[in-house]
Design a protein around this nucleic acid. Structure first.
Lengths: 214, 214
DNA sequence: CCCAACGAGTACGTTTTCGTACTGAAAAAA
DNA sequence: TTTTTTCAGTACGAAAACGTACTCGTTGGG
C-alpha cells in the first residue's frame, strides 16, 4: 500500500534529495522536473551518472535493500511530485511482489542508463554528450525550455563551462536551440538527435521494453 | 536451492557469456578469472562498464527480473567456476528471500562499480584509468600476472592501443609492472594505487560494506 | 626450420579538450 | 537607480588523446 503514505510536494531546482554516505530518508516520485544523480569520489571528482524524471523513482538503493545513498542526488530542473518515507517504501516492496518487480525493473532501467553514460563519457565528443543530455532532459519536461546555466551543464558532463558555451553556440548557429541567459530552448529536436547519434536512445528504448511488453 | 543445479566448468579467455539482446541462459559464478561487461550501442561504440570475478555473479538482469542481456559479457582472463541455468537461478531467488537479498546487494555493488566507471571515463586520464583497471583485475586474480594484450586493454578502456602501450611503458619505467609479450605482471601494487588515486577504491569498499556488516 | 600472424614500440601531425582569464551584458540586490 | 553578482562569449597556449602507420621482435603453425 503506497497511496496513503505519499506526500505531495514541490521541488525547487538544487533541492537536495540524497547525500552520499547518508541514509536515504524518502523515495521521490517526480511528476514534473528532473533530478540528477551525481557520483562523487574521495577527491571530489564528480559526474552525473543518470537522471530521473516522471518515468522513475529516486532512491534506487532502497529497492536493492540498501538504505544508504551512494551518490549525490538533487533537483536539476525544478518541478513537483510525491515522496514516501523510506520505511513505508521498503515495507510496501516487501509486501507486494508485483510492486517489487515493478521497481526492480525501474532500477534496471536506471542501470542501463548509467552504463550508457559510461559509454558516452568514454567515447563521445563533448557535442554529442551535450546533445544526449538535452534529449534526456527534454524527455522529462513538458515544455521545450531547459532552464539551466552552462555552468551546471558543465558540472554534469564533467567538462569546462567554456566548452559547453562553445558547443551550445554551435547548436544555436545550426538552429537546433535558442538561448537566453540561464535558459535554453529546444527548437529542432530531430537535429539534436542526429548530433547525439547512437549515444542516445538505447536506455530509453530498453526502459520502455522493461515497463511495457517485455 | 542452488547447490544441485550448479555445473562446474572451466572458462577460457574470450569465452562468451552474454550477447546483447539475446536471452541470458545461465548465471556464472567465477572462482578464478575475470569477466568483462561491455556496453555496446547501435554504431558499435563499445566500452567496458564493469568487471566480475569471484566476488560477484554474472547475469545481473536476471536478479532484476529481466532475462535479456543488455551488454556483451565475456571472459577477459580465463579461469573456472560454476554456472546455473536461468530458470533455476530465478526460481531460487523467487523462493528464498535471503538469497534474493544477497543477490540484490551483489547487483547493487555492480551498479556502484558502473557508476564509478562512468566517473573515471569522464574525469580520469588514460594513465589513471589503466591503473584502476589493473587494480580491479588484480583484486580478482590469485597471481600477479595479468595475461592480456595492450589491444584488449585498449578496447576495454575505449582508447587507442598505442596509448595503452605508452602508458604501460611508463608504469614499467616507474617499476610498477614488468611486461612480457601478451602479459603484464604487477610488481608494485601500492604504486599503482597511487596513480589511480581516488578513482579506485570506492566500489570495492562499498561492496564490502554491502556484503558484510551493513 | 621457416614464414605468416601477432604484439608492441614508436612517430607525427591533428583534433579535442583543458586551464585560465578577461570582458561585457543581464539580472539581482541594495 | 546604482551597485554587485552572475552568466555567457571569447581567447590562447598547453596538454591529452587521436588516427594512422611503419618497424621489428616473438610466437605458433605449416
Amino acid at each position: 500500500m503506497i497511496g496513503p503514505h505519499l506526500e505531495a510536494l514541490t521541488l525547487k531546482e538544487r533541492q537536495v534529495i540524497e547525500v552520499p554516505g547518508k541514509p536515504i530518508t524518502h523515495a521521490y516520485f517526480l511528476e514534473i522536473g528532473v533530478a540528477s544523480v551525481v557520483a562523487v569520489d574521495g577527491e571530489d571528482h564528480r559526474i552525473e551518472v543518470g537522471v530521473i524524471g516522471y518515468e522513475g523513482v529516486t532512491g534506487v538503493p532502497l529497492i536493492m535493500g540498501d538504505a544508504r545513498a551512494q551518490h549525490s542526488t538533487y533537483m536539476q530542473i525544478g518541478g513537483s511530485g510525491h515522496r514516501i518515507a523510506q520505511d513505508a517504501f521498503c515495507g510496501a516492496i516487501a509486501q507486494s511482489e508485483s510492486l517489487r518487480a515493478l521497481f526492480l525493473k525501474s532500477a534496471q532501467g536506471f542501470m542501463i542508463q548509467t552504463a550508457h553514460t559510461a559509454l558516452a563519457n568514454g567515447r563521445a565528443k563533448l557535442e554529442q554528450r551535450l546533445a544526449r543530455w538535452l534529449l534526456m532532459a527534454h524527455d522529462r519536461t513538458t515544455s521545450d525550455a531547459v532552464p539551466l546555466t552552462h555552468e551546471f551543464l558543465a558540472v554534469m558532463l564533467g567538462v569546462r563551462r567554456a566548452g559547453v558555451s562553445v558547443a551550445i553556440h554551435g547548436f544555436e548557429r545550426k538552429g537546433l536551440v535558442t538561448t537566453r541567459r540561464g535558459q535554453l530552448t529546444i527548437v529542432n529536436r530531430a537535429g539534436i538527435e542526429q548530433v547525439a547519434g547512437s549515444f542516445y536512445g538505447t536506455p530509453e528504448a530498453e526502459l520502455k521494453r522493461l515497463l511495457e511488453g517485455k
